[in-house]
Amino acid sequence: MQRWVRLFLVSLLIFTSITYIQPPHTKAAAGEKFKILEVRDAWSATNRIDPKTVITSMLTGLDATKYEIKIMTVKELNASRFSLDGAFDAIVFDSSAFSGTDRYSMTISDTKKNHNTNKIENDITKLKANEIKNAYLKKGLPVFLHQDVFAQTSSNFNLIFKDVPAYTDVATVITKLKAQKIVRPRLESVSIQQNGAALTGVDKGPMAVPNVPIDFSYTTSVENTNQLVQLFIDFDSNDQFDESEKIDEKPAGKTGTLTYNFDAQVIRGHETG
């Protein structure tokens, strides 16, 4: 089973002839929480944009100091651009906010009508479903699907996740989450050097030399697993990392180094938090 570690080590802000290297776009593993993506067809039976709507996780009883929950609707998940691979330790699809045939409805919006789409278009896309299947289920990471997601027999939920057992009681999911251990690899440290000299802040470190390899050295939380480490450069500074921006890729170990030659003068930027 191959695990991928997408190490978004650095992003670039390009200004004429000077390129600033931002700090590693990841945080050290120490004290990192167990991350859960919680998805529902809607978080209220009324329109989500109602300012009085209170969005509350259904995964009650999880220690906030140990667990971090990101809440999304299916629509938001389908529209999201970030990679799910390596982003979470578990994914939970909740029971529907509706009943009967309205549960995770596949109904397509009629553009001729002005109406609330809260109850409709709540099927997962094949793209996102397959991403979850490949990045989580095939890697042994937990994915919990409430029986409501299978309410529409011809949905993508049924097509892609037909072999995944459904749950009915959220309490059993919470119990299983409490027993889970973090298996997603973590970065413990990242350093950036050139010719052995650390590239620190703009006002502290030396300016890097063009066309000389810059080393991105890392330490992970795992000793020896079947995974890859990848170096991405955010050339367009949009805080998104796609395949065209992948610079280097190697089998990952406890420690390792990836390198890249810049063709312009570069200095490392300030910490951004």
Rank of each mutant, 00 (worst) to 15 (best):
D85Q: 14
M207C: 02
Y218E: 01
P24A: 06
A166V: 07
Q240C: 05
V74N: 01
T225E: 13
W4A: 12
D234H: 03
I192K: 02
S17G: 07
S95D: 12
I192N: 00
L84N: 02
P185H: 01
L187S: 07
K70N: 13
N226P: 00
R103T: 09
K204Y: 07
P51D: 01
K113M: 05
V10D: 05
T168F: 07
R103K: 15
Q147I: 04
D50P: 02
I14K: 13
F8Y: 15
A197S: 12
L177F: 05
H25N: 14
P51L: 04
G253Y: 03
N134F: 13
F150M: 11
I108Y: 08
Y167Q: 06
A197K: 15
I69C: 02
Y104W: 04
N116F: 08
I120T: 09
F98C: 04
H270V: 15
I247P: 02
N116I: 05
T220N: 04
S155D: 07
P165I: 02
V183L: 05
D63P: 03
T117K: 11
P206V: 06
E223T: 11
D239I: 13
Q193S: 13
P24E: 01
I91H: 00
I14E: 14
G201V: 08
P165R: 03
R184G: 01
G253P: 03
T168M: 08
S155Y: 05
T225F: 06
I71S: 01
V54E: 06
L159Y: 14
S189I: 00
G31D: 08
M58R: 14
G31M: 06
K52E: 10
P206G: 05
F98T: 04
A42D: 02
F144C: 04
A197V: 15
K139R: 15
G140S: 05
F88G: 05
F34I: 06
F161I: 06
S80L: 07
Q180Y: 11
Q265Y: 14
K250R: 13
V39Y: 02
V164A: 01
Y218D: 03
N116E: 07
N130G: 08
E223W: 04
L258I: 08
P23I: 06
L77F: 06
D123Q: 09
R268T: 01
V5H: 12
Q265I: 11
S217V: 02
T73G: 03
L258P: 03
G31L: 05
T172W: 06
Q180D: 10
I174S: 03
K112Y: 10
R3Q: 11
R81S: 13
H25I: 12
A179L: 10
T46P: 00
T73Y: 00
K176F: 01
